[in-house]
Design a binder for these strands. Structure first.
Lengths: 129, 129
DNA sequence: CCTCAAAAGCGAATTTATTCGCTAACTTGT
DNA sequence: ACAAGTTAGCGAATAAATTCGCTTTTGAGG
């Protein structure tokens, strides 16, 4: 019996997507340059990863220009949502509330963000009635 | 150049840890039985995974009894914390607040949990002054 | 003590994820 | 249209993650 392919984004895939989300459409060379701030790999490797991601439909590519331009296939928000849901499912036994409590108590958030959270909370609790 | 070993928990490792957190100390056979509710693998595989996890110090083993009893090496809370931090770092660009906002708006939480969150929020904002 | 069944361990096979060297294709500036 | 330098693509190599068959060890019962 073989090992099943993972449905998760791999380390490099996520790193590349992050670059694309933050920097916008980029060439393989640009992506590679950002990437090597963290990893120490060859240009060929970056190109290969991009081709794999293209096959997996994780990125799109504009081939009408040279060098080609790569773009993320999904928005950052949608991907975050998916991964968040996954973490809740697998690590928090499906309890979103328990994740929120832990996030709030153990990770730093700015006063502005806290205010925003409160505002959202007001809205949510208002709807309940 | 080889592929670097991942510092993340793998799929099976997490599944096994979840069983141990939820069910408490268990034998390989018990773990295997729970595991096969999701996956369809051989008993040998489960034992092997446990030995790998033992080498990685992800689980502890009581060998004074037979069959041996396995226990998680880290608490669920600590592992959650680590993985949450990692997600925030890698997927939310380090912004815990942004994760909170998305969790709050896209994932269901019970009224009790919302109340708890509000309480925690009060405490946090109180400390700021 | 001996037999049987379950538990534990080992080594090897398979697949995925990642890596890069080498070749081919394309641009640009003579 | 040619030379030089990128850029794109391919195929093969390597380590990690997962799988299981087979052997060895252990414990319980007679």
């Amino acid at each position: 019996m073989p090992r099943p392919p993972s449905s998760q984004l791999t380390e490099v895939e996520l790193q590349i997507l992050r670059i694309l989300w933050n920097k916008g459409a980029s060439t393989a060379r640009q992506i590679h340059n950002y990437l090597t701030e963290d990893r120490n790999t060859n240009y060929s490797t970056t190109v290969k990863m991009l081709s794999v991601m293209l096959r997996k439909a994780l990125v799109k590519r504009d081939e009408t220009v040279h060098p080609h331009l790569y773009q993320p296939a999904a928005t950052q928000a949608r991907t975050q949502q998916k991964m968040l849901k996954d973490l809740i499912q697998k690590v928090y036994n499906g309890s979103a509330g328990s994740l929120m409590l832990q996030a709030l108590s153990s990770q730093k958030a700015s006063p502005e963000e806290l205010a925003e959270i409160r505002q959202l909370l007001d809205k949510l609790e208002g709807d309940e009635k």
